[in-house]
C-alpha cells in the first residue's frame, strides 16, 4: 500500500492538478475569514470549505490516471487496492491542507473566551468530519459510479451542497457546532460527527473499491 500511495502522491503532485482545488480553498478562506474575527466562526468557514475541496481532490485522484496506466497498476496490485490508494491520497492531501488552515486560523483570530487548545481541537475535528464527508461525496460522484465528466461534476457540486445543508449529515453537524459555539463562546469538540463521517467514508470506500473492477 505504501508503494501505491507514493505512486498516487507523485502522480498528483507532479501533474499540478492539486493547484485548482487549493486555490479555491485559499480564495474561500480569503473572502470568508477576516483577521481578528471570533475564532470559532472562522474555523466553521475553514471546515465547511474543506468539504467541496476534498470532494474535488478525490475526484482528481480517481480520474486523472490514464486508463492504460490504471490497468497496469490494477494487475500488479489489485483493482480494489489501487482504487483505495487514489481515495486515500485525495483525502489525505486535502486533510493536510485543512490542518494547516485550522492552525493558521486559530493563530490569527480573536480567541477571547476560548483557549487556543480547545479552539484548535474543535476546529481539527470539524475539519476532519468535513474532509471525510467530502471524500465520500467525491468517491460517489466519480468512477466507478458516475463515468460521464459532466454528470460527475454536477453530482460533485450538488452532493457537496447537500452534505453541508442536510440535517443529519456529519459535516453539517460539525459546522453547526462551531457556529453556535461562536455565539455562546463554548468550544464543544464534535467527536460524534467525526466518528459518523469516518464510518460513512469507510462504507463508501468499501463499496467503491468492490465495485471498481465490476462496473467498469
Amino acid at each position: 500500500m505504501t508503494a501505491l500511495l507514493r505512486y498516487q502522491t507523485g502522480l498528483l503532485l507532479r501533474s499540478q492538478r492539486w493547484l485548482a482545488p487549493l486555490l479555491l480553498y485559499a480564495a474561500v478562506l480569503g473572502v470568508g475569514v477576516t483577521m481578528g474575527e471570533p475564532v470559532l466562526g472562522a474555523l466553521g468557514v475553514a471546515a465547511a470549505a474543506l468539504l467541496p475541496v476534498t470532494a474535488w481532490s478525490v475526484r482528481i485522484c480517481l480520474t486523472h490516471e490514464p486508463p492504460a496506466a490504471r490497468s497496469v497498476v490494477a494487475a500488479a496490485a489489485g483493482r480494489g487496492r489501487a482504487h483505495l490508494a487514489a481515495l486515500l491520497t485525495g483525502t489525505g492531501l486535502s486533510a493536510l491542507v485543512g490542518v494547516v488552515a485550522v492552525l493558521g486560523v486559530t493563530a490569527f483570530s480573536d480567541r477571547r473566551g476560548v483557549t487556543a487548545l480547545a479552539a484548535s481541537t474543535t476546529g481539527l475535528l470539524a475539519a476532519l468530519a468535513c474532509a471525510l464527508t467530502g471524500a465520500a461525496v467525491g468517491a460517489l460522484a466519480s468512477r466507478p459510479f458516475v463515468l460521464a465528466p459532466g454528470w460527475s461534476l454536477a453530482a460533485l457540486v450538488l452532493g457537496s451542497l447537500l452534505a453541508l445543508a442536510t440535517t443529519g449529515s456529519p459535516a453539517k453537524h460539525a459546522v453547526t457546532a462551531l457556529i453556535t459555539g461562536a455565539r455562546t463562546l463554548t468550544a464543544t469538540p464534535p467527536w460524534l460527527a467525526c466518528a459518523a463521517a469516518a464510518v460513512l467514508a469507510a462504507a463508501v470506500a468499501f463499496c467503491a473499491c468492490r465495485a471498481s473492477a465490476r462496473l467498469e
Partner: peptide, 10 residues
C-alpha cells in the same frame, strides 16, 4: 495493455 501511449508526469 494493448495501447500504452501514456501521458504520465514521470
Amino acid at each position: 495493455p494493448e495501447r500504452f501511449p501514456v501521458a504520465l508526469p514521470f
